[in-house]
């Protein structure tokens, strides 16, 4: 069809070629075409963070990005990052701290938290954690347990011996 675009992208490690309407948001491709319903739509304006995914390793709002813009990109969602184990420590800590209630914001917050922990050279302070997840709204928890969980994982990572840096 002339009113669709051909795109090829990698989603959770799987190469996907598909036709998309130019106006299709990335989140609709993920949720509706690929059935990856762990990514949630909260506001469709990039404010609430429920739709957070990784695009080429960086967090992005999948409601603000068109599927066509993801052509050639590597997309990771909560499903893929769960299967790879990348989120395991955070998921475990969130579970123990009850840092999840309704769970709608949770995948987005996990991705934001993972980004912070991956970027930080030193364990972030509670204030830094609060700052970093302020683009992700949670209406249930009041955030404290989320901060507790992230801080615990940050602390245990810092306590681990650092891998040797390659020359």
């Amino acid at each position: 069809m002339s009113d669709t675009l051909s795109i090829t992208l990698t989603v959770n490690g799987e190469r996907i070629s598909t036709q998309v309407p130019p106006r299709l948001p990335l989140i609709d491709l993920l949720r509706e075409t690929l059935g990856l319903t762990g990514t949630h739509l909260g506001c469709a304006q990039g404010v609430c963070g429920a739709c957070t995914v990784r695009v080429d390793g960086e967090t992005a709002r999948s409601c603000l990005m068109l599927a066509a813009q993801a052509d050639g990109c590597q997309i990771d969602t909560v499903e893929g990052l769960t299967d790879s184990g990348a989120l395991a420590a955070l998921q475990d800590a969130f579970h123990r701290h009850n840092a999840v209630q309704c769970g709608y914001c949770t995948p987005g917050i996990l991705l934001a938290a993972a980004e912070l922990l991956d970027q930080a050279e030193n364990p972030p302070t509670r204030d830094e954690i609060r700052d970093h997840i302020s683009g992700n709204y949670c209406r249930c928890t009041g955030y404290q347990s989320v901060v507790d969980a992230i801080a615990e994982v940050a602390g245990s990572r810092a306590a681990r011996p650092k891998p040797e840096t390659a020359p």
Partner: peptide, 9 residues
């Protein structure tokens, strides 16, 4: 809550 944490809501 484990389901919710894994995007399996």
């Amino acid at each position: 809550a484990r389901r919710l944490l894994q995007g399996r809501g």
